[in-house]
Design a protein around this nucleic acid. Sequence first.
DNA 1: GCCAACGTTGGC
DNA 2: GCCAACGTTGGC
Length: 150
Amino acid sequence: MKYWLMKSEPDVFGIDDLKNVKVEPWDGVRNYQARNMMRDQMKKGDKVFFYHSSCKVPGIVGIMKVLKEGHPDFSALDPESKYYDPKSTVERPRWFMVSVGFVKKFERTISLEELKKQTALQNMPLVRKGSRLSIMPVTKTEWETILSLS
DNA sequence: GCCAACGTTGGC
DNA sequence: GCCAACGTTGGC
C-alpha cells in the first residue's frame, strides 16, 4: 500500500465537504505529473492526506483513501465545466482522476509552518518553496512522522 | 527545438 | 493583493 497527499482549496472543496459526501471524484486536475500518478500509480486502498491550500492556515487536515483507481475525468469532456478541455475526448481522454473516500478528520490542522520544521519532512515537495504539485507521493516514514503530530 | 510571454498556483 | 516559481503556449 502506498501513501499520498492531495491538495484542495477548502473554499472550493474541503475536508468537511468530503465528510458529507463520503465519496468524491477528484476532478479538475490539469497537471501531467499529477495526472500520471492518478492514472498509473494510485491503487485502491492507498491512504491519502487531505491538504488545505490557499487558505488562512494551510496544512494537513485529515485522511482519505483511494476507492476507485484512475478513470477519465468527466469535467474535461463537459463544455459547461471550467475544467473543459476540447483536446480530451471520450475515445482518447487526456485527463484522469481517482475517487476518494472520507476516513478521518484530525482534531486540528497540522499546519504547513509546523510541517516545515520537521527534519524528517525536508524532502517533501510540499515544504519546498514554489512547489505547485497538487498530488504527491508520501513515504512511509513521512506518513508516520505526520501522523505522530496529529 | 528554443525561449519569451503569459497564465496559474499558492504562501504570505 | 503581491509576487516567486513554475508550467504551457506559440512564434520563429
